[in-house]
Amino acid sequence: MSKVTLKGFILVPESELEVVKAELVNHKRLTLEESGCIHFSVTESPINPLRFDVYEEFKNKAAFDHHQSRVKASHWGKLTVNVERHYEIIG
């Protein structure tokens, strides 16, 4: 199976920015601990503080699907329900 890459950005509502930023540390840690995660980064834009650039690589579709399922059921998933996601998935 081939690698899956996700790239894009999220837009966080201003009223939720501080709680999202606080939980992002935990979300990054949990994702990087996943067995199929090759790379995971979420970086706040220096131009727009409500925009975070996202880049993810997983070793295969099964690992990517596992990540997506875990995130939906996680505290991060519940906390970021109002976040706009703009992604391209390759692989």
Rank of each mutant, 00 (worst) to 15 (best):
V25L: 13
F9W: 13
V4M: 09
V20F: 05
K28C: 08
S15P: 10
G8M: 02
F9Q: 14
T31H: 09
E23K: 07
K3C: 14
E34T: 04
V4C: 10
S15R: 12
N26P: 07
I38G: 08
C37L: 01
V19T: 13
L17R: 07
E34Q: 04
E18G: 06
E16A: 11
F9H: 15
R29L: 12
K28L: 12
G8K: 01
S35P: 12
S35W: 05
E18R: 06
P13Q: 06
T31Q: 10
L30R: 07
K21G: 08
E14N: 08
V12K: 05
L6P: 10
E34N: 05
E14G: 00
F9T: 10
L11G: 11
F9E: 14
E18Q: 11
R29T: 10
L30G: 06
E33W: 04
K7Y: 15
E14V: 04
T5L: 14
A22S: 13
A22C: 11
L11K: 14
V12S: 01
R29W: 09
G8I: 02
E16V: 05
K21E: 10
N26K: 08
N26W: 03
K28S: 08
K3R: 14
V4T: 08
A22G: 09
T31G: 12
E18T: 01
K7E: 15
I38D: 09
P13L: 02
A22P: 11
V25K: 15
C37A: 01
V19I: 12
A22M: 10
T5C: 13
T5W: 03
G36N: 03
P13H: 04
I10G: 05
I10W: 01
G36K: 06
L24H: 04
P13F: 00
S15F: 02
E34D: 04
V19C: 15
N26D: 12
S15Y: 01
V19K: 15
E23W: 01
L32H: 03
S15D: 13
L6Y: 02
T31Y: 06
E14M: 06
L24W: 05
L24D: 05
G8V: 00
S35L: 11
E16T: 04
V19L: 15
L6V: 08
N26G: 08
E14D: 12
K21L: 11
H27R: 07
V12C: 03
R29F: 11
L24I: 00
V12F: 02
R29S: 13
G8Q: 05
V4L: 09
H27C: 11
N26E: 13
G8N: 05
E16D: 14
K7D: 15
